[in-house]
């Protein structure tokens, strides 16, 4: 009985020493954590921030969006809302003003124009279904990581304004 308990104690002490060896081995290894406010991680590849509009190739101030509403319909959280001009009305107006080009114009004029695209990021669940459902590839993920705010209103994001701001900034940098 005594022999057994002594043996058990010795084996237990030995297991502690083995554990201590692991700890001391790791103690002399370099630091692997990142001290966030002073340092930040290098790569955020694949990070899905909130969605943003992709600019048109010809006009960076305009979006590729064709206002088909498929992202609005698929969104599980119903956090996307977009407004677009009605195509028929616009066609009729321009047709009345310029009668000569009536024939070739309708196909072009049938496109509704995007007026506003608002994302309520408070409710977004970052599933990415909107990006995948978009037929024209007008949505992509932004890489905004360090988002913080004081009110909910700050996260109701007007994506069209954001696109125009980005285009302006880019234009200023280029020119």
């Amino acid at each position: 009985m005594i022999v057994k308990s002594i043996r058990e104690t010795v084996a237990g002490m030995w297991s502690l020493l083995v554990g201590m060896k692991v700890t001391s081995k790791n103690f002399i290894q370099p630091n692997i954590t990142v001290h966030y406010p002073r340092q930040s991680v290098k790569s955020l590849e694949g990070y899905r921030g909130h969605i943003e509009l992709v600019p048109n190739e010809d006009d960076p101030f305009k979006s590729k969006c064709i206002a088909c509403n498929s992202c609005v319909r698929i969104c599980p959280s119903a956090c996307i809302s977009l407004k677009a001009s009605k195509p028929k009305k616009a066609a009729a107006k321009e047709g009345a003003a310029d009668g000569a080009e009536d024939k070739k114009a309708p196909a072009k004029k049938a496109k509704p124009e995007l007026l506003s695209f608002v994302l309520d990021y408070n409710y977004c669940c970052l599933c990415g279904l909107c990006v995948q459902s978009c037929p024209s590839g007008a949505l992509r993920y932004s890489s905004d990581v360090y988002l913080a705010g004081f009110s909910r209103q700050e996260f109701v994001i007007d994506l069209l304004a954001r696109l125009q701001y980005q285009a302006q900034k880019k234009g200023a940098a280029n020119g």
């Binding site: 058990e8 084996a11 237990g12 297991s15 502690l16 083995v18 554990g19 060896k21 692991v22």
Partner: peptide
């Protein structure tokens, strides 16, 4: 292996 040494075999 390290987990085993550090934790699984630990008698506490």
């Amino acid at each position: 292996k390290m987990y085993k040494d550090l934790v699984t075999d630990n008698f506490i």
